[in-house]
């Protein structure tokens, strides 16, 4: 039953505030209700009113009516404090599962009013607060625990304010179409002994001088020493002798090395070793089903590897590229 209501509410919300990268907050998108403090305030107002009635005290009536009026005025102020903001999702940080992923969101005042103490959060225990003066543009990161590998969609962002009196809460739930790429959680493990790939199948040749590997047609610039002169006498074909040098000392991080572990564990182990290699400034290659990345190093290489790990077995994200806000 609960999920039914939740689903229905979700659909209703999707219609009312459809997902978009940029959202302007207006009366269609802002909800406003008293807070618990607000209800308490109403109670106090009623108590003052009854005191005024019983003591027939005109000034106490004034105070009671003042409290009521203040509440009404507060509705307008609380609303105005949130309305007129334009919310844009900028980008998301890339983190591992179990870390806090920060989505950077830009708030801009469009209507020429200050906005005080705007609270943004996905989870009520991780709130980012921001204040803007009139015509200001500000970016703020809102953090959330990354719970799942791959493309992570945080759902609707809650933007709320209790300012100025805390009697009312104006809020909205916006879906900024944001998504973040979440890498697997790195888990330390010993690297299996066979990791230095020396078997034939694991070798990749690079042109060298030690072992003769074959012939190929001559290309200008090939050294004269390497031309297969004997063959030239026989067939008039100018061929170059090829030699190869083994690159066995380079590191291959392979899916198969962690046989016996589950898929997520394997990804975590590989992720850990990618980071380790990068830290120790060593070249490393990655081989997982369907993807092979040549050994290399550097931040770009690391990003490629981690992305490959993150997206292993993940379907294409639900949004079309270009519309999404994150950078894959």
């Amino acid at each position: 039953m609960r999920t039914l209501i939740k689903n229905y509410f979700g659909r209703w919300l999707d219609q009312r505030i459809p997902p978009s990268t940029t959202i302007f907050l207006n009366q269609k998108r802002i909800f406003i209700l008293p807070t618990r403090t607000g209800y308490f305030f109403i109670l106090i107002g009623l108590a003052v009113f009854f005191a005024a009635v019983n003591y027939e005290n005109s000034m106490s009536f004034m105070v009671a009516f003042f409290l009521a009026s203040l509440f009404l005025v507060c509705i307008l102020h609380t609303y105005a404090n949130l309305a007129g903001l334009e919310i844009t999702a900028l980008y998301a940080s890339k983190v591992h599962v179990g870390d806090d992923v920060g989505f950077t969101i830009q708030l801009q005042d469009i209507v020429g009013k200050p906005h005080e103490s705007i609270r943004l959060f996905w989870q009520p225990y991780q709130v980012s607060t921001v204040s803007l003066i009139a015509h200001e543009k500000k970016s703020v990161s809102v953090f959330l625990l990354a719970s799942q590998r791959g493309y992570f969609r945080p759902g609707r962002l809650c933007i709320e304010t209790h300012y100025p009196l805390g009697l009312l809460r104006a809020w909205t739930w916006v879906d900024l179409n944001s998504q973040a790429l979440i890498y697997p959680k790195p888990i330390a493990c010993p690297l299996p002994a066979c990791h230095i790939a020396s078997s034939e199948g694991d070798t990749l040749a690079k042109e060298g001088v030690e072992d003769f590997t074959g012939l190929r047609s001559y290309q200008p610039g090939d050294g004269l020493r390497h031309i297969a002169w004997k063959h030239f006498w026989k067939s008039d074909d100018l061929l170059t002798k090829q030699f190869s040098a083994y690159t066995d000392m380079r590191l291959w991080l392979d899916w198969e090395q962690f046989a016996g572990a589950s898929i997520e564990e394997r990804l975590s182990f590989l992720c850990y070793w990618c980071l380790q290699c990068e830290q120790h400034q060593r070249d490393y290659g990655l081989r997982i089903p369907n993807i092979t990345l040549e050994p290399a190093r550097g931040p770009q290489h690391l990003a490629r590897c981690l992305t490959a790990l993150a997206l292993f077995g993940v379907n294409q994200p639900g949004i079309t590229p270009g519309k999404g806000t994150d950078n894959v």
């Binding site: 009521a68 009026s69 203040l70 009404l72 005025v73």
Partner: peptide, 17 residues
């Protein structure tokens, strides 16, 4: 400012409630 804005409402309530 909030107080001043509340005053007209207050006066109205005072007279008519």
């Amino acid at each position: 400012v909030m107080m001043l804005q509340a005053v007209p409402l207050m006066v109205l309530l005072f007279i008519f409630i």
